[in-house]
Design a protein around this nucleic acid. Structure first.
Length: 874
RNA sequence: GGGCGAUUAGCUCAGUUGGUUUAGAGCACUUGGUUUACACCCAAGGGGUCGGGGGUUCGACUCCCUCAUCGCCCA
């Protein structure tokens, strides 16, 4: 069989994905096995696959594939969320290109456009995940706006309302003037901007005196209803009880006193605009001030402003300045850097706005959810996010859950003509409740009108770990099998949006945590540490990457730079490294499959030795990998297997057993090698599913329906550490000989003699491997130093390569002296410790014993080196 | 302004209750190599006063304080 010298992922990936799908390997149904569950962080329907998804889903797939191979009933539930604001914005834009205005459509008409859009785009990202090898149970694919998920959202709203956790109130909210909706605190991102600080003078009523305030938003003076000073500020004592005139409109407003005012900032005098600033609003409440809302929903000035009506607030900011100057109210303008809240979705500058919204009380739920994380019932990886989480939870504010949009779950509140309302899952139930409430049996559905607002998308996402299993349907008990789920893998940027709220919902509705572990990934950045964004064009297309380096290569590349929680600096050299690794495995396979097997020949000694060693090496590897996974050090786990495959298996084991050119391999060695290879592949499978399947299928004859992905993960036998250590000494010796070859320019094909002056514990266990790997023609144990030889040490053993007098004495001496100096320095350090009575007295016995061993080894080495030097100096 | 975290090799990072040879990995670098599995490779090698200073301890990359620099979150 001819095997190509390069692995081609493109030829194999689709084939095996289809095979896995056809065999139903991704499917999970409850059975007697222990479940292992992950719910996907639902990407939103507007999205396409980006590097963050690649990282996230690679990790999830690794966890789920490994769990499956460890005998768990692994279930990874995929799905998407409906992303209210983002999707509605996209649909509105598309309609615009078709000449349709949203306001021309009825709610139902708009929704049918939105559903069409979702049909077209919603599945794209999930299809892309298949390219990555994601082993999701696709039959379970969910959408936050589908029937069971919607029912869950509505029913929980009703339940929370009935528990008095949901209320309606007039409050200051973050208003997105572009999306025309309120957004939650978490959806506001603060951006540093260069702006200006305007100093404006307000005339004191009835006097020719002025008072100066500083503001970054001069247009809002039209909504001013007070000027505020600090009661402790003596500079303004003379202003107490007076009134001032708002520039341009000459409205008379009071001067009030409140300790909120920072005497150091600006002029120490603050204008108060209760309708357009959260702090001003609170001051206004304290002082019973009037609120003048000068903005329309779209950010233009309203009739109440009196001036500039209909113009955008930013236009007015420009235009009002010359007017103020003309009127003599502008004192000066300074450059000023401040942070401005912008909508996470539309980028529009958020306007604090008073409006009627629905809120969910957070304090009780937050308490439970905080405890769960602080006592590690839900474990965070890395744990440092516990602090961030605690800080948020301790300062949590009620969650504004209503959005003034069409695309989403419509709030199940039904109003009567009186303005009174009932909360019910369906309009039929609402009628019954309304009847009971009003005592009027004549009420029908026609008398009720449903709340126009929809719910925040996260109000459906927070139920996800339950709702994907139809967990709110009393007739479905599947949720009892899969819930709580095991691991959640997500970016740390949505710790509050999503993780915290899922934990709240889990305890609220199921009485327990939604997942046992949360693995936070970092943000994928470019090589220079910049966030990947469309604008910068610094984000590679994942599909292109996979086409170039293979899905396995990209998966490896993602992990190579991704410690948990830390940002990862992505560079194309990483998937390239992944591809190279895939090729390395491929070529090891090519080597093994290329040998002729002869069962009649005897197994060479070197092969027996190498097999005994690698068997132990595998045990050690399995243990280390298990340990890494238990601590969610996934990139370390990969790195372990990577190094063992490349260095230990390929460079040591395979080279050690390799028969001479065109010679056959004995059957016993072949059998052992295939077993090792098989185990290595299984350890690698979660990381590199496609390549490992391709090789595994041809490594030995497989039956139809078999697959590495449903094979067992190897388990470790008790570790033979002594054997491993002896092999390491042998490696050092081989390394020493190779160095000599390099220094003396002796080609590998020229065999060398080797004399060994063994130390106390010289073990010959791997001599046959040593002889082969270093190409030694004759190895002799000696009891005295060999004359005319180049020497080196490995541990306390001294090795001599006879050179027929062709040695450079000076160079040898230099090498030996350097080594001696190092050993002496080292010994000095050891002796310093051992000479300290307090160390010997108070350190644990094992530590002291270790130091004594170091001392003995160093002394032995020093003795040997000193003798060698003396001999050469003669 | 409040809080959290980081600083270890040229780069990206490990370093696990303070003790495993005066610090490890991958990449990059240097030198040599057409040894027929692999140049997407092989072999050998160089490179770090663990951000500065102070302290605790028999012993500090590890714990404490302080300074500097950077990052993140929140307001």
């Amino acid at each position: 069989m001819e095997i190509a010298s390069k692995y081609s992922p493109n030829a194999t990936e689709d084939k095996w994905y289809k095979y896995w799908m056809d065999k139903g390997f991704f499917k999970s149904v409850p059975d007697e096995r222990e479940p292992y569950t992950i719910v996907i962080p639902p990407p939103n329907v507007t999205g396409v696959l980006h590097m963050g998804h690649m990282l996230n889903n690679t990790i999830q797939d690794i966890l789920i594939r490994r769990a499956r191979m460890m005998g768990k009933n692994a279930c990874w539930v995929p799905g998407t969320d409906h992303a209210s604001i983002a999707t509605e914005a996209k649909v509105v834009n598309r309609l615009k290109t078709q000449g349709i205005d949203k306001s021309d459509l009825s709610r139902d008409e708009f929704l049918s456009h939105a559903w069409n859009w979702t049909e077209e785009h919603g599945g794209i990202i999930l299809e892309q995940l298949k390219k990555l090898g994601a082993s999701c149970d696709w039959d379970r694919t969910c959408f936050t706006l589908d029937e069971p998920r919607s029912k869950a959202v509505i029913d929980t709203f009703v339940a929370l309302y009935e528990k008095d956790l949901i209320y309606r109130g007039i409050r200051m909210v973050n208003w997105d003037p572009e999306a025309l909706t309120a957004v939650s605190d978490e959806e506001v991102v603060y951006k540093e901007v260069h702006s200006k600080l305007y100093y404006l003078q307000y005339q004191i009523e009835g006097e020719e005196e002025f008072v100066t305030i500083a503001t970054t938003r001069p247009e809002t003076i039209l909504g001013d209803t007070a000027v505020c000073i600090n009661p402790n500020d003596e500079r303004f004592a003379h202003l107490r009880g007076k009134r001032v005139l708002v520039p341009l409109v000459n409205r008379s407003i009071p001067i009030i006193e409140d300790e909120y005012v920072d005497m150091e900032f600006g002029t120490g005098c603050l204008k108060i605009t209760p309708a357009h600033d959260i702090n001003d609003y609170e001051i206004g409440m304290r002082h019973n001030l009037e609120s003048i809302d000068i903005l329309n929903d779209n950010g233009t000035l309203s009739e109440k402003a009196g001036l500039f009506v209909g113009k955008d607030r930013f236009v007015v900011r420009e235009e009002i300045i010359p007017e103020l100057e003309k009127a003599g109210n502008l004192l000066k303008v300074e450059n000023y850097d401040n942070k401005v809240g912008c909508s996470e979705r539309t980028g529009a500058v958020i306007e604090p706005k008073l409006s009627t919204q629905w809120f969910l009380k957070m304090s009780d739920m937050a308490k439970v959810a905080l405890d769960a994380v602080m006592n590690d019932e839900v474990k965070f990886h890395p744990a440092k996010f516990k602090n961030v989480y605690r800080h948020w939870m301790e300062n949590v504010k009620d969650w504004c859950i209503s959005r003034q949009l069409y695309w989403g779950h419509r709030i199940p509140v039904f109003y009567l003509e009186s303005g009174d309302f009932v909360v019910a899952s369906t309009i039929e139930e609402a009628v019954e409740k309304a009847k009971a409430k009003t005592g009027s049996d004549a009420l029908t559905t026609a008398d009720l009108s449903q709340e126009e607002d929809v719910l925040d998308t996260w109000a459906s996402s927070w139920l996800w770990p339950m709702s994907v299993f139809d967990g709110f349907n009393p007739e479905n008990n599947e949720v009892d099998y899969y819930y709580p789920t095991n691991d959640l893998v997500t970016g740390h940027d949505i710790i509050f949006f999503w993780v915290a709220r899922m934990i709240m919902a889990g305890y609220e509705f199921k009485g327990t945590f939604p997942f046992r572990n949360v693995y936070f990934t970092g943000m994928v950045r470019d090589k220079q540490g910049r966030k990947m964004s469309k604008q910068l064009g610094n984000s590679p297309d994942p599909l292109d990457l996979m086409a170039t380096y293979g899905a396995d290569g990209v998966r490896v590349g993602m992990l190579l730079c991704s410690p948990a929680g830390g940002d990862l600096l992505f560079d194309e050299s990483l998937p390239e490294q992944g591809r190279n690794f895939a090729n390395k495995i491929w070529n090891a396979f090519r080597l093994v499959k290329g040998w002729d097997i002869d069962n009649s020949i005897e197994q060479p000694e070197y092969a027996k030795q190498a097999i005994s060693w690698f068997d132990a090496k595998l045990d050690q590897t399995i243990e280390i990998v298990n340990d890494h996974f238990s601590k969610y050090r996934i990139s370390d786990a990969l790195m372990t297997v990577y190094t063992v495959f490349w260095q230990e298996f390929s460079s040591w084991y395979l080279e050690a057993i390799k028969p001479a050119y065109q010679q056959p391999l004995d059957g016993a060695t072949y059998k052992a090698t295939v077993e090792f290879f098989d185990k290595m592949l299984r350890l690698l499978h979660p990381f590199m599913p496609f390549l490992t399947e391709e090789i595994w299928q041809t490594l030995e004859g497989r039956k139809e329906g078999e697959s590495i992905m449903v094979s067992d993960m190897p388990v470790a036998k008790p570790l033979n550490a002594d054997l491993l250590d002896k092999f390491e000494i042998m490696k050092e010796a081989v390394g020493g000989i190779r160095t000599i070859r390099k220094e003396k320019n002796i080609a590998m094909k020229d065999a060398l003699k080797l004399d060994v002056l063994g130390g106390e514990n010289y073990a010959a266990d791997f001599d046959a491997v040593l002889v082969k790997m270093a190409n030694i023609s004759e190895k002799t144990m000696v009891s005295e130093k060999t004359e005319g030889a180049v020497s080196f040490m490995a541990r306390t053993n001294e090795y001599f390569v006879p050179m027929d007098g062709m040695i450079d004495v000076e160079a040898e001496l230099e090498k030996l002296r350097k080594d001696l100096a190092h050993q002496e320095g080292f010994l000095k350090g050891v002796m310093k410790k051992l000479g300290n009575e307090r160390f010997v007295g108070s350190a644990p016995e094992a530590v002291v014993a270790k130091e004594r061993q170091k001392q003995a080894d160093a002394e032995a080495k020093i003795k040997t080196l000193t003798e060698s030097i003396a001999r050469l100096e003669k």
